[in-house]
Design a protein around this nucleic acid. Structure first.
Lengths: 251, 251
DNA sequence: TCATAATCAATCAATTTTATTCAAAAACAA
DNA sequence: TTGTTTTTGAATAAAATTGATTGATTATGA
């Protein structure tokens, strides 16, 4: 077996199992332990995998690849509709804050050529904004693994130097692997600060997120208008309306 | 069998199998081992295939795999060597500033698991840093199209809140598409500020950049040590040494 | 904590693969 | 035909890969 093929095999095994022991890999490749170890070292230096004591697992990079595509396909259409509706609320020349997260990411195509100034704490947002020629400011802060959001005391301080006509918040980070995470306190502070600095505030949330938030969380949303879709169940919609304004987008 | 015909056969075989050993190819073409080897060398120099120990596989180009960001092979190896040398200058626990730009980007793989704190103004740097688990801070500022650098008054102010053990600067943005850009004044201010805030400063520059900078630019570098490679011409190296410390990396 | 077992990195010899050289065979031109 | 060039196949030395062994390091469980 060619060493390239063997390494491909190892990657394939890890793709299905996520982690594998040296012994398993020896079994499945038919190579000796020493050879498998050498392959693992090579693959690790290429950042294809991560070695762990007794075996190997896929590297963060490799693992994130598929899930990013996967993540963005979940409720994709709904997110787009919500994003479009949110973007339509802006007037030319306004300055807005775009919260980190995948939902606000979808707004970007609708912000082109509208003479807007965008401030964001989402690293993934920046290249998308810049490549469309949108005037973009980034608040500073500590980078957060997973979502690429900027958070922390420095982020808050930087944020306070701005003021916004409108502010668009996602409901939470939604980690691609861990699923719906409990709201991150660091990100929550950023959201709340942005909310205070903005003339108008909107929360973008597809129905799955609204459905899963708890009562305690709803309180935080009360200062903003929630933009969601008609896929939200009627009872949840009614419940939500007790606490805040709700705009329902038809999908 | 005509040699062109035989080479076509080899390509066809690889198209179906993706990789093949020398022995397989000898079997299937009926030629001798030496001949097959010669064919493979030829095909490789034509960038039709990629030789691997014991056989061959289709070149990435033919397989039209996303050529890992088409990592502009321009001075790539040189950049890597320079980046590695630069990274080796860091001690555990230090806090460093990574300037925006493609050369400093190459340093990131060498910063893993070294207990470092990285501050950067380069948006493209951030996901690479975070996915490797490196503690990352982003200064704020206005996003600059093309390089993804954060610049402007807000960037400078944010930068001044840090202090660095070491600071690594690229000579300029060098956009992969637009080629060598003229030094941008906004980025220059950020570089100079970072330089003032750092205990030690290093400029990373492959030989083509040193060769093209003007006298006026050299003055700005004088406060930092320049890290470049042995591909820099002797006369240029001598000239540069008049102005600042120079570390030459062998490629 | 210690002892035991498992895992690891480093080394070395055996094997396989590769590049190089050289002569024979084939293709080609006059 | 003859001479020249190109291609081919075999032989050999150099290089790379592999598997086993060693001692060191790291995990595990009493």
């Amino acid at each position: 077996m060619l060493h390239t093929e063997r390494r491909e095999t190892i990657i394939e095994i890890l793709k299905t199992k996520d982690t594998a022991s040296i012994h398993e890999l020896v079994e499945l490749t038919g190579a000796s332990e020493a050879t498998v170890r050498r392959d693992l070292s090579k693959l690790e230096s290429d950042e294809q995998i991560k070695r762990i004591h007794g075996g190997a697992s896929l590297s963060r990079r490799r693992r994130n690849e598929p899930t990013i595509a996967e993540k963005s396909s979940v409720n994709q259409w709904e997110k787009k509709k919500i994003a479009e509706a949110a973007a339509s609320l802006l007037e030319p020349g306004e300055c807005l804050f775009l919260d980190a997260g995948t939902t606000t990411l979808e707004m970007i195509p609708y912000l082109v050529d509208r003479d807007l100034v965008v401030v964001t704490n989402g690293i993934p947002h920046v290249p998308l904004l810049l490549e469309r020629g949108i005037e973009t400011y980034v608040i500073g802060g500590k980078g957060k693994q997973g979502t690429g959001a900027l958070v922390g005391i420095k982020a808050i301080e930087a944020l306070k130097e701005f003021c916004f006509d409108a502010c668009f918040l996602g409901i939470n980070g939604v980690h691609p692997v861990h699923g719906y995470t409990t709201p991150d306190p660091d990100e929550a502070v950023v959201k709340r600060t942005a909310l205070e600095l903005a003339e108008r505030s909107y929360v973008l949330a597809d129905h799955s997120k609204i459905g899963s938030i708890t009562f305690a969380n709803i309180g935080e949303l009360a200062l903003a208008e929630v933009i969601t879709s008609d896929r939200l169940r009627d009872d949840e919609r009614t419940n939500l309306k007790k606490y805040t304004d709700v705009k329902v987008v038809s999908t």
